[in-house]
């Protein structure tokens, strides 16, 4: 596994996601910055957590800078970042 990986862009309607491995048992350390945090902050966090779960990730540091991405974009960027970290890309 790599030390760090990222995916996405800072363009409007996209999200930039950075991931780093964490030791087993650390859980998910998630930080979300978003231009629509007030309206969608909870929704974004929920989508990211669900995507990590579907990828069977239990321990990871995730920093997301959101520019108003919709769910399917968030899912895509998280998945790409995780795959890159695991060098599955």
């Amino acid at each position: 596994m790599k030390e760090k990986a990222w995916a996405g862009t800072m363009e409007s309607s996209d999200i930039y996601v950075e991931v780093e491995p964490l030791a087993t048992g650390s859980g998910i350390d998630l930080t979300v910055n978003s231009v629509v945090y007030a309206q969608f902050g909870d929704a974004i966090e929920k989508t990211i957590m669900e995507t990590l779960e579907s990828l069977a990730i239990d321990d990871m540091k995730v920093v997301a800078n959101d520019r108003g991405a919709v769910d399917c974009t968030i899912k895509a960027r998280v998945e790409t970042a995780v795959r890159r970290l695991k060098e599955e890309a």
Partner: peptide, 8 residues
């Protein structure tokens, strides 16, 4: 105007 801007 666009239908939405940055998800809004």
């Amino acid at each position: 105007a666009p239908l939405s801007r940055a998800r809004l």
